[in-house]
């Protein structure tokens, strides 16, 4: 039997550079896509993740003043007039500066107007800890928005997901917050050499990253990679872990987690960020309430400590859950 494969040519790229690539592909696909933010144009972005866009797309890429409220508000206004704006908030922590625009204007505009308008705004933010930026430039901010109906939230953890989810976010007719983990910028991956819709990643679909029988570990972004590391450690002890990356927090793909639990009966959620009021606790509450019968051990949340993200390496390292901590918790549950 012969199989003919016509695989599209791919290129190697890292997580940081694939951001510009995804933006470029959408700017090229749809002339209604526009992009604004601080230093995103001439400077190519504070993280050099938007290099070349201004040169290629001209006036559709705009450098703004340091005015986060105006950035988000202007994106909403432009969206109401038919454009598909992408707004960059340099560090996710700065979402605090424009919290009102995000939660009261962007999230609620369509609902408040009785469905008169679509508000297809994508907000990109550099997220997360581990790079030594200190308490006001390191927060995983995605949980701040979990309680605000009207915002989709995506948290890509690989190059391929970054590319596919950012493009899907820009095409979505709803507001989407895209969290880009800055401690993953150097991560390598492959994307198509030419724009290819086959590489779009649908919003709301989890990825079963590794299959296993004994425990389900759910983790995003940086923690996804640490969960995989933990799964390697566990394999040496004969425990097989299934690792699921939800990739999207709103809407959340509960079905994939439930399917996995039918097999493993044990749930560990690893969340970067303090434990209270987050997607991890919400997932555990939801599984406990609706699928209690599936569980053979207490569902467990591994989270960061309830303190701000400290600057110094030993303290920041300890703040972030690591692979050996995840593996230790799993072993406890397996022996429960």
């Amino acid at each position: 039997m012969t199989t003919t494969m016509t695989a599209a040519a791919t290129v190697d790229i890292n997580y940081r550079k694939v951001i510009a690539r995804a933006l470029a592909d959408e700017l090229a696909t749809d002339t209604k896509v526009v992009f604004l933010g601080e230093d995103v144009g001439a400077a190519g972005g504070a993280f050099k993740s938007t290099e070349g866009l201004k040169q290629r797309f001209g006036d559709r890429v705009r450098d703004t003043p340091i005015s986060e409220q105006a950035i988000i508000g202007a994106a909403v206004g432009a969206a109401l007039m038919g454009l598909r704006p992408v707004a960059e908030i340099m560090f996710a922590d700065f979402a605090g500066v424009c919290f009102d625009q995000l939660v009261n204007t962007l999230a609620k505009y369509r609902y408040t107007s009785g469905g008169q308008a679509r508000v297809p705004v994508t907000v990109r933010m550099a997220n997360g800890a581990g790079a030594g930026f200190g308490p006001q430039h390191s927060q995983p901010a995605e949980n701040w928005f979990l309680n605000i109906p009207g915002l989709k939230i995506v948290v890509p953890g690989t190059v391929e997901d970054m590319y596919g989810l950012l493009r899907s976010a820009i095409r979505d007719d709803n507001p989407v917050l895209v969290f880009e983990h800055k401690n993953l910028f150097a991560l390598k991956g492959r994307v198509p050499a030419e724009p290819d819709d086959a590489y779009l990643v649908p919003i709301g679909e989890a990825d079963v990253v590794r299959t296993g029988q004994d425990v389900t570990i759910v983790a995003t972004q940086q923690m996804r990679h640490r969960a995989l590391e933990a799964a390697d450690q566990l394999a040496a002890t004969g425990v097989t872990a299934e690792v699921i990356d939800p990739r999207t927090l709103v809407p959340f793909d509960l079905k994939t987690v439930v399917q996995s639990l039918r097999k493993t009966s044990r749930l560990v959620v690893v969340q970067e960020g303090p434990p209270d009021g987050g997607w991890g606790a919400t997932l555990i509450a939801s599984i406990s309430s609706h699928h209690f019968e599936l569980l053979d051990a207490p569902p467990t949340l591994i989270a960061s400590d309830p303190v701000p993200v400290p600057y110094s390496t030993p303290m920041e390292d300890a703040w972030l859950p690591d692979a050996s901590r995840i593996a230790a918790v799993v072993l406890q549950l397996v022996r429960f």
Binding site: Q69, G73, A74, G77, A79, L80, M81, T105
Partner: peptide
């Protein structure tokens, strides 16, 4: 909160 919304609508007008 609405002042930036009009700024955005005007930006769209300028671009389009």
């Amino acid at each position: 909160a609405h002042l930036p919304i009009s700024v955005g609508a005007a930006w769209a007008s300028q671009l389009l």
